[in-house]
Amino acid sequence: MITRIWHGRTAPKHAASYLQFLLHEGTREYLQTPGNLSVKVWQKMDPDCCHFWTVTEWTNIEAIKKFAGEDYNKAKYYPEDEGILLEFEEGVEHCESFVVRE
């Protein structure tokens, strides 16, 4: 299993609306892509900005490529991100993931 982690930041005044975007339209494409196993949104409010992470789990790199394209290490953005995100980070993180069960 592969975990894909994207990070973005907004001004505090945009945090609530951007969270709603991520919980609905902003993660819809993840959920519709074959090979996606899960989608989580993390949020952390700091005094000067709000951090967001989308943390998605995939069956393999080929599944991620169906979502992100051949250059799957590159972040994917949407028109709604324009004017809301404080910057557009170029890359995302991919980690091999393991489930521990007793």
Rank of each mutant, 00 (worst) to 15 (best):
R9I: 05
Q43L: 06
S17P: 03
T3N: 02
E96V: 15
W6K: 00
G8P: 03
E102Q: 12
Y18P: 02
K65C: 07
A11Q: 11
G8D: 02
K74L: 10
T3M: 07
L31A: 14
Y30T: 02
D81Y: 01
R9F: 07
L86Q: 13
S97D: 09
G69D: 00
H94F: 09
L85V: 12
E80D: 03
K40S: 07
G69M: 10
E90V: 11
M45L: 11
L85P: 07
V99R: 11
L22W: 06
C50A: 12
D46R: 06
I64M: 13
A75F: 01
F88N: 05
K13I: 13
P12I: 04
M1V: 06
H14W: 10
A11G: 04
K76Q: 10
T3L: 04
H14C: 02
V55K: 02
G8Q: 01
K40I: 04
T27F: 10
E80A: 09
S17C: 10
V99N: 09
Q43S: 04
G8A: 11
T3E: 03
A75M: 10
W42S: 08
L22S: 05
P47I: 04
T56M: 06
L22M: 07
R28M: 08
F88Q: 12
V100C: 03
L86T: 11
M45H: 12
L85K: 07
E96T: 14
M1R: 01
H7I: 11
K44C: 13
G35W: 15
P79H: 06
K76C: 07
V39D: 02
Q32Y: 09
T3D: 01
V99M: 03
I2M: 04
T33I: 14
F88I: 07
H24N: 12
F98T: 07
F88K: 08
S38W: 14
G26W: 07
V92E: 00
K66C: 01
E90K: 13
T59Y: 01
G8I: 03
G8K: 00
L85D: 05
V55W: 06
I2R: 03
V39I: 15
H94I: 09
L37H: 08
E82C: 08
E102V: 14
L86C: 05
W58H: 03
M45T: 11
V55P: 00
K74V: 14
W6Q: 00
V39Y: 06
E62V: 12
H14V: 03
